[in-house]
Amino acid sequence: MSVITRNGPAGALTDDTLPRKKTALDAVLNFFRRQPLGTAGLAIMLVMFLAAAFANVLTPFDPEENDFQAMMQAPSWTHLLGTDQMGRDIFSRLVYGARTALLVGFSAAFAGGLIGLVLGVASAYFGGWFDLVFQRILDVLMAFPLIILALAVVSVFGTGVFNVILAITIPLIPRCGRVVRASALAVREIPYVDAARALGFGHTRIVLRHMVPNVVGPFLILLSAFVGQAILAEASLSYLGLGVQEPVPAWGLMLQGGAEEYATTAPWIAIFPGLAIVMAVLGISLFGDALRDAIDPKLRDR
């Protein structure tokens, strides 16, 4: 029998021949190597986060300041992306608009996702009348497209950032609850859930400590998709005049102000906010797809 030593005889196992334990850094580097599109999406998200975090440093002008002597100026060294019909610097409003997009997108996605996660797991665990009632409520909510249900909520509660977050959160709850419930039904049949009941664990402990961790994979993938949907929904509501209101910088609001009337005379007013929305949703979608491939064992080595 060979003895494991650092400097053993020929043929003996040494530290150099032992398999090295993978670290978190190895996992991150492997993700970058195997998922180039996901890495590109992550880079876009990082740019958004940095722009939102350091907006006051990156922007040369106040995004809410009107300059009627510089209305609709084309892109130049003074105004990198030009000015809008009120003389406001478009670059400054785009950078500050990233704060609004990220605030609404992540708040609505996490709120709707967490509520849907808890309700979906509870529905699968308890079953019976609770599952029946919960599924019928989901059927009613899922019958409405996200933007239509969000419009209904905004019409009741009014406009503003908080109300927009609430309006987008409500339609995301059934979308998360339905998917999580399907995964939790499979987890419920695993013997360790019955063992936890036999040991006298309460329902809350079984749901939160034994079932929720086993549906985190699909939940994380849903969250990444929800962030993109929430950003797009916020831009749509603001464009329709039912979301964020002036003078708060928001990409959809910037489109509302110049997308149609100034499409030919000052196209930069609509082009740059539109590109910002497209790049944000594209980056989050690419990262979400790559995260799905990395988490799902069936797709990991594709």
Results as ranks from 00 to 15, higher is better:
L185T: 14
A186S: 14
V187M: 09
E189Q: 15
E189W: 05
I190H: 03
A195Q: 08
A198W: 01
L199M: 13
F201P: 04
H203T: 15
T204K: 15
T204C: 11
R205T: 12
R205K: 13
I206Y: 12
I206E: 05
V207H: 12
V207L: 13
V207W: 13
L208E: 08
R209Y: 06
H210N: 13
H210M: 08
M211V: 14
V212L: 08
V212C: 09
P213F: 13
P213A: 06
P213Y: 12
P213Q: 05
N214V: 10
V216T: 15
G217N: 12
I221C: 09
L223A: 01
L223T: 02
S224I: 02
A225E: 00
A225Y: 14
F226M: 08
F226G: 00
V227P: 00
V227H: 02
V227F: 12
G228I: 01
A233K: 04
A235Y: 06
S236F: 02
G241E: 10
G241K: 06
G243E: 02
Q245H: 05
E246L: 06
P247H: 05
P247G: 05
V248N: 06
V248E: 01
P249N: 02
A250H: 03
W251Q: 02
G252W: 06
L255P: 04
L255Y: 09
Q256Y: 10
G257W: 01
E260I: 15
A263R: 13
T265V: 14
A266V: 03
